[in-house]
Design a protein around this nucleic acid. Structure first.
Lengths: 93, 93
DNA sequence: AAAATAGGCAAGTAGTCACTTGCCTGTCAA
DNA sequence: TTGACAGGCAAGTGACTACTTGCCTATTTT
């Protein structure tokens, strides 16, 4: 569970999730160029790769290798735990 | 919005939110002893105070000073933004 | 008034983390 | 088969951050 929050703590990783939500099955290079275009983020390829590793370890991203390419997909399921942990309090409860 | 994720990135701060969800209007000393009792966390009073500052800056905790005491209250409202940002994808959308 | 209690301020430290650099592996096209 | 392309590994660096230490202010209590 701690991995999820660690993963979300970084702005670049949140931007990656935003991009993957718009378009699934993106490769490392595609995500790099999209970060630069739409978010004015220009980290190196290795930096983005490391971010994707963190997101994968948190279960927020799933990667699948096909030949020379590696396609990344978002998985929003773990985020549900956040809202469940600190639910909105009802008056008098 | 970045402040919310930064605040949630630390385990001690998440434990503080857990405690405040169980019982509102707790003071700094109360929270310190509860961290030690229930979570096996033994940071100093100053460390906990700094954590509460971070939570306050993120809007997750509201503090009110009455005389010698300062009472802390949880505010779960900002957490709703998380689920809204990366909603569960429907098949084919 | 004096001691005790609740909390605040500020500097220093150690560990973590994002990022880069340099080189290597695997896959496909010409 | 050779060059180009997609990605991986690993060490090093700088900034950030959680934490402590020491001292201070304010509010009660006796």
């Amino acid at each position: 569970m701690a991995d999820i929050f660690k993963a979300l703590a970084d702005g670049t990783r949140r931007a990656l999730l935003d991009e993957l939500l718009e378009r699934d099955q993106q490769t490392l290079f595609e995500l790099c160029s999209r970060l630069a275009m739409k978010h004015d983020l220009t980290p190196t390829r290795q930096a983005v790769s490391q971010h994707l590793d963190v997101l994968q370890q948190a279960g927020l991203v799933v990667a699948e290798r096909r030949g020379r390419y590696k396609f990344h997909t978002i998985n929003t399921a773990p985020l549900a735990q956040i809202a469940e942990r600190w639910p909105t309090r009802k008056a008098g409860s």
